[in-house]
Design a protein around this nucleic acid. Structure first.
Length: 228
DNA sequence: GCGACAG
DNA sequence: ATCTTGTCGC
């Protein structure tokens, strides 16, 4: 079972959650990787509108072959509603349950959402990184905070996202002439490496493979097309 | 005060 | 996020 550090409980009110984020943000470390990752994990959750049940899953991919080498999923319940800026309090608990079922310890983890591209610089990728104790980064489909200049239309082009003068992430083109994705470091990684890994996980779609496969997994779980 | 607002 | 068919553009 893949392990993680239980830094704190999750039964908090929105106000307490914001206070906690302001305390935890001091623990986030943006830095280059110390070793070359061999495996990467993608995470996501799915749910039926108006229902409390959530389907969480993690997919582990071999960075060399881009083959899925392990999948883990759970049916759980979200203890928190979706509130912009507090996504981690809704998704991380169930994702950790799925994570615990892995037999492999992924070298780096990609999240469907942001890392430092967050009002308090601690989006789901950064917050989860503190629990997982390994490099994490976010790759979101839309912006939460920050501004950026439209990057060139060619795959691989990117431009920095800024918020109050801070460079918090990048708008990255993963496919020619297709809307960019928003990449930002979570913890124990830097922006340049997060961008490189996102491009390395190309499968021909706008959404990189880790997130795309995790999304397919949890949707199959939700529709009963998959049992774990 | 008004508008924006990851999934 | 989820609910859904067709349709515009390369």
């Amino acid at each position: 079972m893949a392990n993680y550090q239980h830094l704190h409980d999750w039964n908090l009110s929105p106000t307490e959650a914001v206070i906690l984020q302001n305390q935890l943000r001091t623990q986030v470390r943006i830095q280059p990787l110390t070793t070359t990752p061999k495996t990467i994990a993608g995470c996501d959750i799915s749910f039926n509108k108006f229902e409390e049940t959530v389907y969480a899953g993690v997919v582990v991919i071999d960075l060399e072959t881009m083959e899925t080498i392990e999948e883990a999923g759970v049916v759980s319940t979200a203890p928190f509603p979706y509130i912009p800026g507090l996504l981690s309090f809704r998704e991380i608990p169930s994702l950790l349950e799925a994570w615990a079922k892995l037999t492999i310890e992924p070298d780096v983890v990609m999240f469907d959402g942001h890392g430092t591209a967050h009002p308090r610089r601690i989006g789901i990728a950064s917050h989860a990184g503190l629990f997982l104790n390994r490099p994490t980064f976010g790759c979101g489909k839309s912006v939460l905070v920050g501004k950026y200049e439209e990057p060139a239309l060619e795959r691989g082009s990117w431009s920095p996202m800024t918020h109050y003068k801070d460079v918090i992430g990048a708008a990255l083109r993963t496919k020619n002439k297709v809307n960019p994705v928003y990449v930002s470091p979570g913890n124990l990684i830097d922006l340049e490496t997060a961008i490189a890994l996102t491009l390395q996980c190309d499968g021909g779609y706008r959404i990189p493979e880790p997130t795309r496969r995790a999304h397919n997994l949890v949707n199959a779980l939700r529709k009963g097309e998959k049992v774990m």
